[in-house]
Structure formats: structure tokens, C-alpha cells
């Protein structure tokens, strides 16, 4: 079931098109990874989806209803984790959550319970009474996420939630996202880190310069690009010329390079040659180690745009 749907969206700033005929579908229960370099239009897309900005043309529906006609009802079921940390510095962690729970209509015992649960979920229970000024970057990020979770949104939109934090906090956040999905939340996860998308997302949308340039599962995306498969082998006995010849004759193999007991086999994309290669070298005395280099999302992006994801990143 599709719970969020954007059709042919155009958003202009002056003559500049931040979103240029964008289509997007989010399926119930999935983690959709929205990947793109800085300035691709991810935040703009998310803000349009959350009803924060008006688009110039195109349709947006959520939960089967048109955004413009049912905006309040739809907003009630969305949570947005903002790219910048947007929490109240003059309210404690608990008060921040009480505020955001309150504006979503939670009251009394229910509010208290939801606040307690959410604090525990982001592991800030001990710090509930502190002002965020005393928090580390990771703790602020966690509080920033928590503020979008108190009201238990059906659709959680996360805009680069791991920017600028330590590894431990980052892993913790990624783990929490998986946990939320298990609990039934649908997640639209935006990032310019491809590793995050690769490890989290069940479906991936790649954006660049206001366009959606590819979408699909990781496997689909990778299959679609012509890329070489590389297999590195270390064998027990140095290969004979017959063995090398046999490897060369395998379907899709382009090149076989060997140096003593190390062999590198390059085949064309999608050849899936690991099994065949292993069969050949096993006959010829056995394998000490094998690694297959799979193309990554980075390669997909590079192939599609001719530039790397990290281009223009200020790190």
C-alpha cells in the first residue's frame, strides 16, 4: 500500500527549479532511502511532502488523501526530524517532548506516558531534567529525533539525522530507525551518506539537481549500471596455464591477471561468476581466500551523474 505519493512536482525559487518534475512513492512499512548530494533538493522535497512549502505544480497525497484538502489530518500522522537541530534551548529535554506532544493533542497521563517512552527510546531518561545546552552533539540529535516521535507518527521523515555526530550516536540512531520500522512506522530517510542508505533502506531513490535520477532496490540499481565484477583469489598451488585458460573461457570474463598465487578476474556486470570461478580453481588444488568486489551505490551514482556523492561536501 502506498502511503505517500508525489506526482510531477515542480518547485521553483525564482527561475531556479529546486524540484523538477519529481515523482515519489512511499510504501507502507518500508524504509525509503532518499540519497543525493548537498543541494540536490532533498530538503525541499521533504518540506513539500510535509506541507511546509507550497509547490508550483503537481499532486501530493498522503494516507490516500490529497495534502491540500486534508492538511491538518495528514500533519497529525507525520513526524519530521529536521536537518538542523530545532529544539527549544530554554526548555528541558522533558519539556521539549511535552511541548511537541502537546501540539499534537496529547494530554495528561497519555502525554506523560508517551514522553517517558520516547525519552527511554532515545536513552535520555537520565537527562530529562537538563537543558539541551549541556548536551553533546549526539544527545541533541537524539532529542531532535525524539521530538518527532512523541506523537507516534505513521510516517516518519528524517532529514539527514546523523550529520555531524560521533560514530556511536550514529550507530545508535541507525539501530533506532530499524527498531521503529519493526514497530510498524514507515520511514523516509534522507542522507548524503550512501553507507547509511545501503545498510538501512529497503528501497532507494537517488536525487540530483532537483531530479529523481534512479529508484529501486539496491540490487536493481546496481544491476542497471554496466559495471565490472572483480574477483580476487588466493589459491594454494600456483595456477597452471590450463587453469588460467579455463578461467578466461568462462562466460563474461574479460580479463584474468595472475601474480604467483594471486589471481584477479574481471567479468562484465551481472555475470555472477564467483561460483564458476571457484569450481575451476577448486579442481586445480583449492582456494585460500576469495573476495568479490560488488559495485556500490557510489558506483551507481558515479555512473548516472559522472560525479561522486561527496562532491561539494564541506567536510
Amino acid at each position: 500500500m502506498i502511503i505517500a505519493y508525489m506526482n510531477d512536482i515542480v518547485k521553483r525559487y525564482g527561475s531556479f527549479r529546486a524540484l523538477d518534475h519529481v515523482n515519489l512513492e512511499v510504501e507502507k512499512g518500508e524504509i525509503l532511502g532518499l540519497l543525493g548530494p548537498n543541494g540536490a533538493g532533498k530538503t525541499t522535497l521533504i518540506h513539500a511532502l510535509a506541507g511546509l512549502i507550497k509547490v508550483d505544480s503537481g499532486d501530493i497525497s498522503l494516507f490516500g488523501k490529497k495534502l491540500n484538502d486534508h492538511i491538518m489530518e495528514i500533519k497529525q500522522q507525520i513526524g519530521l526530524v529536521t536537518q538542523d537541530i530545532t529544539i527549544f534551548d530554554d526548555l528541558t529535554a522533558r519539556e521539549n517532548l511535552e511541548f511537541f506532544g502537546g501540539i499534537y493533542g496529547l494530554r495528561g497521563a497519555e502525554l506523560k506516558q508517551r514522553v517517558d517512552e520516547t525519552l527511554a527510546f532515545v536513552r535520555l531518561t537520565d537527562r530529562a531534567k537538563n537543558l539541551p545546552a549541556k548536551f553533546s552533539g549526539g544527545m541533541k540529535r537524539r532529542l531532535n529525533i525524539a521530538c518527532a516521535l512523541v506523537h507516534r507518527p505513521k510516517l516518519l521523515i528524517m532529514d539527514e539525522p546523523t550529520v555531524g555526530i560521533d560514530l556511536q550516536s550514529r550507530n545508535y540512531i541507525l539501530e533506532s530507525v530499524r527498531e521503529l520500522q519493526k514497530q510498524g512506522t514507515t520511514i523516509l530517510y534522507t542522507t548524503h551518506y550512501m553507507e547509511e542508505v545501503q545498510s538501512l533502506a529497503s528501497k532507494i531513490v537517488i536525487m540530483d539537481q532537483g531530479h529523481v535520477i534512479a529508484k529501486g532496490t539496491l540490487e536493481e540499481l546496481v544491476e542497471n549500471i554496466q559495471h565490472e565484477e572483480k574477483i580476487h583469489l588466493e589459491v594454494i598451488d600456483e595456477p597452471t596455464s590450463e587453469t588460467l585458460e579455463e578461467l578466461r573461457s568462462l562466460n563474461g570474463v574479460k580479463q584474468v591477471i595472475h601474480n604467483k598465487k594471486k589471481i584477479q578476474i574481471i567479468s562484465s556486470g551481472g555475470a555472477e561468476n564467483v561460483d564458476n570461478v571457484l569450481a575451476v580453481v577448486k579442481k586445480a588444488g583449492g582456494v585460500r581466500s576469495v573476495t568479490a568486489e560488488k559495485p556500490t551505490l557510489e558506483d551507481v551514482f558515479l555512473t548516472l551523474t559522472g560525479k561522486t556523492l561527496r562532491d561539494g561536501e564541506e567536510e
Binding site: 510535509a50 506541507g51 511546509l52 497529525q76 538542523d84 530545532t86 534551548d89 501540539i103 521530538c147
Partner: peptide, 13 residues
């Protein structure tokens, strides 16, 4: 300026 207002704008308010 801190963006909290934008965030409040995401809520049904």
C-alpha cells in the same frame, strides 16, 4: 531564527 517555528509548522497547528 532557530527553525523551531518551521518545526511547529509541521504539526497540526
Amino acid at each position: 531564527t532557530k527553525g523551531v517555528l518551521m518545526r511547529i509548522g509541521v504539526a497540526p497547528v
